[in-house]
Amino acid sequence: MKVITFKFSCSLKQVIEERGTEDMKKIMKSSVTIIVNDKTNLKVHFSYVNWNDSQFRPSDQIEYFEYKYLRRELVDEKDKEQMMKMKRYEEGFNSNIQ
């Protein structure tokens, strides 16, 4: 099911990039989380956190996504510290936007 949902979310992103309005395209440049569960319910979460300019690598971002949305267990104290740093970064970024 994960492969299907990943392909679906990639297809959705491609459609927006190709056919979407300028506002939709701007939104897609922000942090967009698309979640489709096994019942094909779609959740879309937009965030303006600039992960690309952060100290966090793409692999860190994937681990944070898994921690935040998939309840990934933390391996050790170093892992926990990394997730807390990312959470603080996200919260700090969001508090500056509002």
Rank of each mutant, 00 (worst) to 15 (best):
E18W: 01
G20T: 09
T21G: 05
D23I: 09
M24F: 14
K25L: 06
K25A: 05
K25T: 08
K26P: 02
K26Y: 02
I27F: 07
I27H: 07
K29E: 15
S30T: 11
V32M: 07
T33E: 12
I34S: 02
D38V: 15
D38E: 10
T40M: 14
T40P: 05
L42W: 06
K43A: 13
V44C: 08
F46A: 08
S47W: 00
Y48Q: 13
Y48V: 10
V49C: 06
W51E: 02
W51R: 01
N52F: 13
Q55D: 15
F56A: 03
F56G: 04
R57N: 11
P58C: 08
Q61P: 00
E63W: 01
E63F: 04
Y64L: 04
F65L: 00
F65E: 00
E66A: 03
E66R: 02
E66T: 08
E66I: 00
Y67G: 00
K68F: 03
K68V: 06
Y69I: 03
R72Q: 00
R72N: 00
E73C: 11
V75D: 10
E77H: 13
K80N: 05
K80R: 12
E81N: 15
M83G: 05
M84S: 06
K85W: 11
R88D: 15
R88I: 10
Y89A: 05
Y89Q: 09
Y89L: 07
E91S: 11
N94H: 08
N94Y: 01
S95W: 01
S95A: 06
